[in-house]
Amino acid sequence: MRSLADVDVLSPASVDEALEILHQKAGGIKIVAGGTDLIVQMKHRIIGKTDLLNIYMLDELRYIRLENGSVRVGGLTDFATIHKSPVVRTAAPVLAEAASTIGSVQILNKASIAGNIVNASPAADSLPALYVLEADLHLRSKASSRTVPIRDFYKGYKKLDMRPDELLVEVSFKQVGDGYLGKFFKHGLRQGDAIAVVNGAVLLKWDASSKAVSEARIALGAVAPTVVRAEKAEAILVGSRLEETAIVNASRAVQESISPIDDVRGSAAYRREMSTNYVYMTLRMLAEMVRK
């Protein structure tokens, strides 16, 4: 645990000013938003000491809007706000559910969605939800602005498609329409605040007329260097009536999409079992909801 007394903190008054600083100091400065990950990492020597660009006061990046069927979430929006947002609860309940599990109240009040994305922990709880929502990430630099689908944003363990002069300013995704059912799951080793051993999200479209799944999205976290989509499992579900066989087969098929490792929270073998079993339990619960 080291002191950061020699670390300078620049606190710009606007996004444009922040982008200007990033432009000038690209690579030599780290962005701090809520600080819930970065401060500990720097104090514990997990990352090197550099000066900090404090964007916490940039309220222009705090918003949740529903526009033309799309939900737009400002990068600095904290998870407590996301969890409670009527827009998110209606348009993307799976994200609202995931948001509440990210940590204690103290963490939720401070941690931002952009921070969770950019910190790039494979166990980050918002990511599986954003994967099944197929969210777009909006990056700005002084000179440019671009949009990256979340699946393309991660190039490997903590490797991002993001330049040092860029800032993640917004996350957007299409509103989840009628007939969609979603559920987030998290396996932590304690009922209170705990980092996920495995987490994930399932989003299904149930076609009431054919009484079958017409679209399936499953994302899993903490079981590969990045969050993954379980495509094989998704394919098995599409067209199924969520009967036991389909559920069992789909949950087994997630194995083909994951490559977990051993760490202090669990063995790779256990993570494999949990991936299948959580998807199984989640699908069973969704099947029950459908039958009601």
Binding site: Q191, G192, V264
Partner: peptide
């Protein structure tokens, strides 16, 4: 020791 802090060494919270 691999569990050197209160995020890896988990003591009961009010929910446990």
């Amino acid at each position: 020791l691999l569990t050197t802090n209160l995020s890896t060494y988990l003591i009961p919270s009010i929910k446990d």
